[in-house]
Design a protein around this nucleic acid. Structure first.
Length: 278
DNA sequence: AGCTGGTCCTGATGGC
DNA sequence: TGCCATCAGGACCAGC
C-alpha cells in the first residue's frame, strides 16, 4: 500500500495510539522480511514508552528514548489498529499477520503478504537514526519549505536518466512512487522519458508544485489510488482518488481527449498523454 | 503467464 | 584515458 501518502495517513492514524504509550508485548510470528526482524526485538521494546511517531520518506519511525524502530511497508505492508485489545482479545492472526505490538489500550498488527517491508531496530548508541544506511541518502521531503523548482533544478543537473526514473530513485525528493510519478508528470506537462537534466527551470517549478499538490491531495482524502487500501482502522471502501493517467490506457485524456498511452520504464508501467506531455 | 504499491544491491556505463 | 557518480537490471514475494 505504500507511497508517501499512504504512509503518512498510516502515521496519522497510529500516532494517537502510540505516542506516550508503553509497549506491553511484542510477538513476531514471521521474521523473514526484506531483512530479518532482529531477534530480541521484544526485549528491546517491552516496558518502553513511544515518544513520537515520525516519518522519513516512506519509513515510519517509532521514536523511543533508547532508540528508533524503523518500519517500511514495502509493496504490500500495512499496520492495523485494534483498539482496546490486549494481545489475547485481538482477532486471531491471519496468514500474513506477521507482527503484533501491544501497547496500553491497543494492539497494532503488521500485515505484509509479500514481505518486501522491513522492521529494524536502531539503538541510540548507533547515532542519529537519520544517518542510518537506509535513510542517509534519501532526498528532500516534498513538504520541506526548501523543496521548490530551484531545488529540483539544481538536483537534477547531470542526471542523464529519465525524469520519471530520477523521481522514483528517491535521492532527489522522497515519497514519489510509481502512481504519483505518472500523475505528477502529467500535471506538469512533462514527458516521463525526458532526460532529467533536460527539464528546464520553469518546468522544474511546475513539477515541484505538481508533486506537492498530488501528494497533499492524496493525504487529504486519506489514502490512495490503490485497489486494496484499507485504513488503519480497517475500514473498507476508502475514498479513491481519480487518477488522471494511471491505469487509464486507451481512455481519453481529461485535458485534450487524446487516448492515454502506457509505456514501460525500468520494468514499471508509466502512463501519459503524448499530446499534453513533452 | 504476466501484472501489481518499493528499493537495495551488483556490475556496467558514461560524462566530465 | 580514467575516475567515480550514475545507471540498468535482478532480486525479494504473494495474490489476482
Amino acid at each position: 500500500m505504500p507511497e508517501l501518502p499512504e504512509v503518512e495517513v498510516t502515521r496519522q492514524a497510529l500516532a494517537p495510539w502510540l505516542e506516550g504509550r508503553e509497549v506491553r508485548a511484542v510477538q513476531v510470528r514471521e521474521r523473514r522480511f526484506r531483512w530479518p526482524v532482529p531477534p530480541g526485538l521484544a526485549r528491546q521494546l517491552v516496558g518502553r514508552r513511544v515518544q513520537a511517531l515520525g516519518r522519513r520518506g516512506k519509513y515510519l519511525l517509532w521514536r523511543f528514548d533508547h532508540g528508533t524502530l524503523i518500519s517500511h511497508l514495502g509493496m504490500s505492508g500495512s499496520w492495523r489498529v485494534h483498539p482496546g485489545a490486549a494481545s489475547g482479545a485481538a482477532p486471531p492472526p491471519g496468514l500474513h499477520d506477521h507482527v503484533d505490538v501491544a501497547v496500553d489500550g491497543a494492539l497494532l498488527r503488521l500485515t505484509d503478504p509479500r514481505r518486501f517491508g522491513a522492521l529494524l531496530w536502531h539503538p541510540v548508541g548507533a547515532g542519529a537514526v537519520e544517518r542510518h544506511a537506509l535513510l542517509a541518502h534519501l532526498g528532500i521531503e516534498p513538504f520541506d519549505a526548501c523543496f521548490d523548482g530551484d531545488w529540483l533544478y539544481r538536483a537534477t543537473r547531470g542526471r542523464v536518466a529519465s525524469i520519471k526514473q530520477v523521481l522514483l530513485a528517491g535521492d532527489v525528493v522522497v515519497g514519489v512512487g510509481n502512481i504519483y510519478a505518472s500523475e505528477s508528470l502529467y500535471r506538469a506537462g512533462i514527458h516521463p522519458r525526458r532526460p532529467a537534466r533536460r527539464v528546464g527551470r520553469a518546468r522544474c517549478a511546475l513539477l515541484a508544485a505538481a508533486i506537492r499538490a498530488v501528494l497533499a491531495e492524496a493525504i487529504e482524502v486519506g489514502g490512495s489510488t490503490l485497489r486494496d487500501f484499507r485504513s488503519a482502522a480497517g475500514e473498507e471502501g476508502y475514498f479513491m482518488i481519480e487518477a488522471n493517467v494511471y491505469g487509464r490506457a486507451g481512455q481519453p485524456c481529461h485535458r485534450c481527449g487524446n487516448p492515454i498511452r502506457k509505456l514501460v520504464q525500468g520494468q514499471r508501467a508509466t502512463y501519459l498523454c503524448v499530446r499534453c506531455q513533452r
